[in-house]
Simulated assay, not measured.
Amino acid sequence: MIVLGIETSCDETGVALYDTTSWENHAPAHQGILGQALHSQIAMHRDYGGVVPELASRDHIRRVLPLLDDTLHEAGLKLRDIDAIAYTQGPGLAGALLVGSAFAKSLAQGLNLPSIGVHHLEGHLLSPLLGGSVPEFPFIALLVSGGHTQLMLVSGVGKYQLLGETLDDAAGEAFDKTAKLLGLDYPGGAAISKLAEKGQSGRFDLPRPMLHSGDLDFSFSGLKTAVLNQVKKFEALGITDSDEIATFHADLARSFVDALVAVLVSKSEKALRQTGCKHLVLAGGVGANLQLRAALNASAKKNRFEVHYPPVNLCTDNGVMIAFAGALRMLAENNGSTTSGAFDIKPRWDLASNNLT
């Protein structure tokens, strides 16, 4: 079964084709990727310091059809070769989701194909199955992105239990807001990580929010505020030396990353202990962060668990994860659960509410 995946939840337009033959024959899952194309809107939104929903929606409209053509060309396929269509139903920006839903449903109706709405986070947490090191069910998934920070117990496809989540800012939001405080371009995650590599650990005693809360929830707004306070204190000194300013920024970035990573790793370790799982999956845009990966690798070696990552190019939003998640859903449901003809979207959508029965 060849599944077309459409991703338009926020500021990336992704299209991909996935063939389930490899999965059904227990071959490496990544062999099923037939073609993919992705367009990022980062350059368009950078001037505004964040995503502008109306601009995002309009750009998805412009990009999705050419990206489909590129994907079909890469795969050497025609529209008639597609067996089903998966699209991101939510969560995300309403207008952006509506573009993908309308496009997918219209195409499915025109080709007389089944279509299935996919939960965006399900796409992320299943994407490590496309990597070289495949986790075994059950596993713990640490989802870290611009809009979400969650720990999930994944017992199988469509079997998810929320263990903990952020009570305020997501990790990605904290990265972006801290980057803005330090005068870095949007999006801030990669910029902060790169700057932190030049910094010295321990210069600033930043809080590690909810590190000892006793639960698996997160909070990062206080960490962001602590960074703001340090910036204000430094600016009050009136220092104008460029080297000293650069050193301050690098050291503060390092302290910020160290604090955030310490919380994510500690909560992940606790989730593994509580559930008895031996496999941890890191997924979402922040999953590409080198400091976080290094800390998780060190923890895995020390505490004897295995950590798994999606391919780096599949950490950000993309069509492959939607095609793959949609394909696994349809296989699990024997192709019996497809969405209606309406352009149904769910800007707010709890993943656990979408479990298979």
Score class of each variant (00 low, 15 high):
L111F: 01
L34Q: 10
T71Y: 02
I239G: 08
A259H: 02
L206R: 06
M210W: 08
I140A: 11
V144N: 11
V154I: 13
N334V: 00
G164R: 05
V118M: 11
D19R: 12
K270G: 04
Q161P: 00
A271C: 06
A190C: 02
L129G: 01
A102F: 02
T247A: 12
L17Y: 07
E235N: 13
A27F: 04
F220T: 06
K198C: 07
S340D: 09
R293V: 05
G92M: 02
T149W: 07
H124G: 12
T275N: 06
G199C: 12
L34R: 11
G14R: 12
A141R: 09
L93K: 06
G117E: 03
G284L: 09
A37S: 11
F175C: 15
Y18Q: 07
A327K: 10
Q109W: 09
L163M: 12
S266M: 09
S219R: 12
L163N: 01
F256I: 09
K198Y: 04
V154W: 05
F204T: 08
R58G: 14
L356Q: 10
L79D: 00
L34G: 03
D185E: 06
W23Y: 13
A190W: 02
L72N: 04
L328D: 03
Q200R: 15
H124Y: 14
V231G: 08
